[in-house]
């Protein structure tokens, strides 16, 4: 029964996209839309297939994913660390939080030119930009998570004489886990967004480069392929974290829609 319900829901959700694609295809074939600006879905699919077979797509995708991952691990890792520290220790909060809150208001797009001036178009400026984007969501959510720990459970930890380490690993971290995972999700999507920005600014490899390069040669189909890849990978990572959430947070007793 649930399987049947699920296919039903899937089919219902597919109606509009399929309709749009069909209208698009027909409109181009009837010369109502410019084929140069709106290559028909079938030709985009053709481009996609060719790039996949030639290995071009996987090469650039590999580069992009690598950049995003390194940036996420560096920025997200630091965000998690400082967020936990600020949450746990008043002194750390007083030291770190004002600066972080100030930096958080600076729009990422506005510092991009600075990064390029300082570090050039190389890998460093890209990874730093991604890391900076990934830092804040994890910082904020880790901090919130720690502060939301039920103080009644700390009393329990005191009565049971938990060591400092166990207070952290058996009370604070599990209690903060829902927030931390939310932070991971937001950080990942921000990392991915920053990757797009960084690669469109200037790169000689990666999906962003692919899009820029195709634009200058008017290969609109390839531009579409790049956009679709960005969307798919973004969605995929988000789903992966959701699966992780479902596994790690099965103890939760909250309303889920």
């Amino acid at each position: 029964m649930p399987a049947k319900e699920r296919t039903k829901r899937l089919l219902l959700g597919l109606i509009i996209p399929i309709l749009v694609l069909a209208v698009w295809q027909v409109a181009v074939m009837a010369h109502l839309l410019s084929e140069n600006l709106f290559p028909p879905p079938t030709s985009i699919l053709q481009d996609f297939y060719e790039m996949l077979v030639s290995g071009e797509l996987t090469h650039h995708l590999g580069i992009s994913v690598m950049r995003a991952m390194i940036g996420f691990i560096v920025g997200g890792g630091l965000g998690l660390f400082f967020g936990l520290m600020s949450g746990l220790y008043k002194r750390a909060e007083e030291l770190v939080d004002p600066t972080v809150q100030m930096m958080r208001t600076v729009p990422l797009l506005a510092v991009t030119p600075l990064f390029i001036l300082w570090f050039g178009f190389g890998e460093l400026s890209k990874i730093l930009l991604i890391a900076m984007g990934a830092f804040f969501p994890l910082y904020v959510n880790a901090f919130l998570g720690v502060r939301n720990v039920d103080s009644k459970l700390f009393d329990v930890a005191r009565v049971l004489e938990f060591s400092r380490l166990h207070q952290l690993t058996k009370v604070v971290l599990p209690a903060a886990m829902p927030n931390i995972l939310l932070g991971v999700r937001l950080s990942l999507s921000t990392a991915w967004l920053c990757l797009v920005v960084a690669e469109l600014m200037g790169a000689d490899q990666g999906i962003g480069f692919l899009i820029q390069d195709a634009r200058s040669y008017m290969r609109t189909g390839v531009v579409f392929v790049g956009i679709i890849i960005f969307a798919l990978v973004g969605k995929l990572t988000d789903s992966l974290v959701r699966i992780l959430e479902a596994r790690l947070l099965q103890w939760r007793d909250s309303y889920r829609g």
């Binding site: 329990v156 009565v159 209690a175």
Partner: peptide, 26 residues
Amino acid sequence: SKEKGFIFQEHRLFPWATVEKNIAAD
């Protein structure tokens, strides 16, 4: 200290831990 077991009005179990893990605690 552990010499003085305390039972609160609400059970105060760790919601993320199973029954046996709650009993084992640390």
